Amino acid sequence: MTGPILHRDNPEAEPLVGNIKVTRDDWLNVAMDALVSDGVEHVKVMNLAERMGVSRSSFYWYFKSRQDLLDALLDRWQATNTAAMVAQAEAPAETITQAVLNVYRCVVNPELFDTALDFAVRDWARRSGKVRRMLDQSDTRRLAAFTAMFARYGCTETEAEARARALYYMQIGYDLAQLGEPMETRLALVPHYLLVFTGVPGQPHEIEDFAAYARAHSQGDRA
């Protein structure tokens, strides 16, 4: 058996060695890894215990059942991806183009929005009515935040909804395509995307600030 693959939320934490004891976050983190890499059917107590090199008995200190763990994974997804996207849409901005660039921060900063996790939940929703309902509610929340964002900058109700849908569904599809597009290629297109989504050109300083943020927070060529 290989060594435990635990990874704490706090990277400063001491590594677990010897007679290890795992935390609730350890179980959640490894379950998240399994969900993203292998799908929900592989999120099983025995599988996770083997990956960590521990007895499965400690699982029941933190969770009542496998379903309790799955519910915790969904709660974490809602508290990260959906909450971050809504917060970015609601962030203060002087212009609509700046507001859209605030939303784009979710695309380039994996600490704000975990694209792989969103894909995993969408795949899970194909096999679970409960998860499908939660995903629908999440999409509705995100779209409502985008619509309100456009409305704040003078769009009519219908226009705001149309622009919100174009922005949101384009981004979901763009990420799903997994183009492997270099960061600089995508950044070069940002001014044109802003014009398409908002109808007005972005200010040069807004675009430059976003490009600096993207380069500082992205991982590799993820854009």
Rank of each mutant, 00 (worst) to 15 (best):
L176I: 13
T185R: 01
L167N: 02
R163Q: 07
L167K: 00
E184G: 09
M170A: 10
A151M: 08
A148Q: 09
E157A: 14
M149D: 06
R163L: 05
A151K: 06
A166S: 08
Y174N: 07
C155W: 03
R165D: 00
G154Q: 06
R163N: 03
D175I: 12
Y174F: 12
E161A: 15
T147V: 04
Q171A: 04
E161C: 12
L176Q: 09
L176Y: 12
M183W: 01
M170C: 02
C155M: 13
A148H: 08
A160D: 00
L167R: 07
A148N: 09
R165T: 05
T156L: 05
A148L: 08
P182A: 13
A151P: 05
F150Q: 02
A162G: 03
E159Y: 10
A177E: 11
L167H: 01
E181W: 15
D175H: 03
L176T: 12
G180H: 08
L179K: 02
I172T: 05
T158Q: 13
I172D: 02
G154I: 13
A177S: 13
T156K: 01
Q178H: 15
A160G: 04
C155N: 12
T147C: 05
G154D: 08
T147I: 04
L187Y: 07
G173H: 09
G173I: 01
P182N: 11
C155Y: 12
E157G: 07
Q178T: 14
F150Y: 03
F150T: 04
L176A: 15
L179P: 05
Y174R: 07
T147M: 00
G154H: 11
A151N: 03
Y153A: 11
Q178R: 14
Y168L: 01
I172Q: 00
G173S: 13
I172S: 03
Q178G: 12
E157F: 05
A177K: 13
E184A: 14
L179V: 09
Y169S: 00
Q171D: 13
R163T: 06
A166V: 09
E181P: 07
M149Q: 07
R163S: 06
A164V: 00
Y169F: 09
C155A: 15
C155L: 10
Q171M: 14
Q178D: 15
R163P: 02
F150S: 02
E184H: 15
Y174H: 02
E181Y: 12
F150I: 00
R165L: 04
A148T: 09
P182C: 12
G173P: 04
E159C: 05
